[in-house]
Amino acid sequence: KLLSSIEQACDICRLKKLKCSKEKPKCAKCLKNNWECRYSPKTKRSPLTRAHLTEVESRLERLE
């Protein structure tokens, strides 16, 4: 599967780190437990900047 097509777990399953069936409108866990089942939009991760990478590398060197 391509990364862009990976389905996201519902908010509660993601928060509780449960295996989500990803069914809509309610996944199996939410249906069974009568929880409100919501699927928040995916958040875009910002790409690493060179400055951040350099900072992490220098912190790693100090720890070694």
Rank of each mutant, 00 (worst) to 15 (best):
K1N: 01
L2K: 14
L2W: 10
L2V: 07
L3P: 15
L3A: 13
L3K: 15
S4G: 15
S4V: 14
S4T: 14
S4Q: 15
S5A: 15
S5H: 14
S5P: 15
I6A: 14
I6D: 08
I6Q: 13
I6V: 15
E7P: 15
E7L: 14
Q8K: 11
A9D: 04
A9W: 02
C10A: 06
D11N: 11
D11A: 07
D11I: 04
D11S: 07
D11L: 10
D11F: 06
I12G: 07
I12C: 14
I12V: 13
C13D: 09
C13F: 04
L15I: 15
L15T: 15
L15E: 13
L15M: 13
L15G: 13
K16S: 10
K16H: 06
K16A: 12
K17Q: 10
K17R: 08
K17I: 01
L18T: 15
L18I: 15
L18M: 10
K19H: 08
K19N: 04
C20P: 07
C20N: 09
C20A: 04
S21R: 05
S21K: 07
S21Q: 03
S21N: 08
K22A: 07
K22R: 07
K22F: 04
E23G: 05
E23H: 07
E23F: 03
E23V: 09
E23P: 04
K24F: 12
K24S: 08
P25Q: 04
P25G: 03
P25C: 02
K26Y: 11
K26N: 03
K26P: 00
K26M: 10
K26V: 13
C27I: 08
A28H: 12
A28N: 03
A28M: 15
A28C: 12
K29N: 09
K29R: 15
K29G: 03
K29F: 03
K29M: 02
C30V: 04
C30H: 07
L31N: 12
L31T: 14
L31M: 12
L31W: 08
L31P: 02
K32Y: 07
K32S: 10
K32N: 12
K32W: 02
K32F: 04
K32R: 09
N33K: 14
N33A: 12
N33S: 10
N33F: 03
N33T: 07
N34K: 12
N34M: 08
N34H: 13
N34F: 08
W35I: 10
W35D: 10
E36M: 11
E36F: 02
C37S: 09
C37V: 02
R38D: 04
R38N: 03
R38W: 15
R38I: 10
Y39V: 04
Y39Q: 03
Y39W: 02
S40F: 02
S40M: 09
S40W: 05
S40E: 12
S40C: 09
P41T: 04
P41D: 03
P41G: 00
K42G: 05
K42E: 03
K42I: 08
T43S: 11
T43C: 07
T43R: 11
K44H: 06
K44L: 02
R45A: 02
R45M: 02
R45E: 13
R45S: 00
R45N: 00
R45T: 05
R45F: 07
S46G: 03
S46R: 12
S46M: 02
S46C: 11
S46F: 01
P47H: 09
P47S: 07
P47A: 08
P47D: 08
P47T: 01
P47Q: 03
L48T: 07
T49D: 04
R50I: 04
R50A: 02
A51W: 12
A51L: 06
A51D: 07
A51F: 03
H52S: 07
H52Y: 07
H52L: 10
H52P: 07
L53S: 02
L53G: 06
L53V: 06
T54L: 08
E55K: 14
E55I: 13
E55C: 05
E55M: 11
V56N: 04
V56G: 05
V56P: 13
V56F: 09
E57C: 00
E57N: 06
E57K: 00
S58N: 15
R59L: 06
L60V: 07
L60R: 04
E61K: 14
E61L: 09
E61I: 09
E61P: 02
E61F: 13
E61H: 12
R62M: 03
R62N: 09
R62C: 10
L63A: 00
L63Y: 15
L63T: 02
E64Y: 00
E64T: 10
